[in-house]
């Protein structure tokens, strides 16, 4: 089941090389409905990835609260935090597969230590099969194309049946045909697992496939309720055209 995500007054700053501060998230408040598909749209450096990192609890905010499925992330630490992360699927722009592990082990990796999950190897193989790479489960990531690596990354993100899938520019490193293919895959699997999906992208085509679109600029987020329709019109097709 998908989970809801609520951000309240979330602020995150970074100090850069010259000593000045950059506001990656500036008092961001955001509501993402359970099972929805949300796009964070904005130029590079606007703070999209930071928001995903904060929601995925691989970074922590300077202030504000993030609540996922009723759980305040700031209250989590240690094993609880790890458990939360294990329940979130993450797809990175650079795929971030573990180079020394086979495809199967990369997909298997999120399940290490989760003994309550039965038939973990079977699940990993099934996920690889779902992304069309079961026959290459012994291969190493370096033996795959970019699109294939991203498929593996998606399989890894979804193998634990996460309630929340965070995708950071999932098609950013892919050609357009592969991008469409990956988006299709994401959509299919989201529907299959009923997962809440948050996608950071500057690709209008990707954003157009989402239910909600938030504009991110200089750390600030503004909702754009009409954006999906405008984007769909701009792309010359009905909303969620990519779903088809």
């Amino acid at each position: 089941m998908g989970v809801s995500v609520v951000l309240r007054q979330v602020t995150k700053t970074y100090r850069v090389g010259d000593g000045s501060r950059v506001w990656a998230a500036d008092s961001v408040s955001l509501d993402i409905a359970a099972g929805s598909r949300t796009a964070l749209v904005g130029p590079s450096g606007s703070g999209k990835s930071t928001l995903l990192h904060l929601i995925g609890a691989i970074d922590h905010p300077d202030s504000g609260t993030i609540t996922v499925d009723g759980q305040v992330l700031g209250d989590l630490a240690g094993a609880g935090l790890a458990r939360y992360r294990a329940g979130v699927g993450f797809v990175f722009q650079q795929f971030h597969l573990v180079p020394g592990l086979s495809l199967l082990d990369n997909v298997y990796a999120p399940m290490v230590g989760r003994r309550r999950l039965v038939n973990r190897r079977g699940r990993a193989l099934a996920m690889l099969d779902a992304v069309g790479l079961a026959d290459r489960h012994r291969a190493l990531p370096s033996q795959l194309s970019g699109g294939q690596q991203q498929r593996v990354a998606i399989a890894r993100a979804l193998v634990g049946r996460p309630g929340l899938l965070l995708a950071d520019e999932p098609t950013g490193n892919l050609d357009s045909a592969t991008a469409v293919e990956i988006l299709d895959l994401l959509t299919r699997l989201q529907q299959e697992f009923d997962t809440t999906v948050v996608i950071a992208t500057h690709d209008p085509g990707v954003a157009a496939s989402c239910d909600d679109i938030f504009r991110v600029a200089d750390g600030s987020v503004t909702a754009d309720p009409d954006a999906p329709d405008r984007l769909a019109a701009l792309l010359g097709g009905p909303r969620r055209a990519v779903e088809g």
Binding site: A86, P99, R156, G160
Partner: peptide
Amino acid sequence: RRELGILAALGWTSTR
């Protein structure tokens, strides 16, 4: 370093 970060993002505890 990077793959440890990935594994952390995948839910591996620091102990693991």
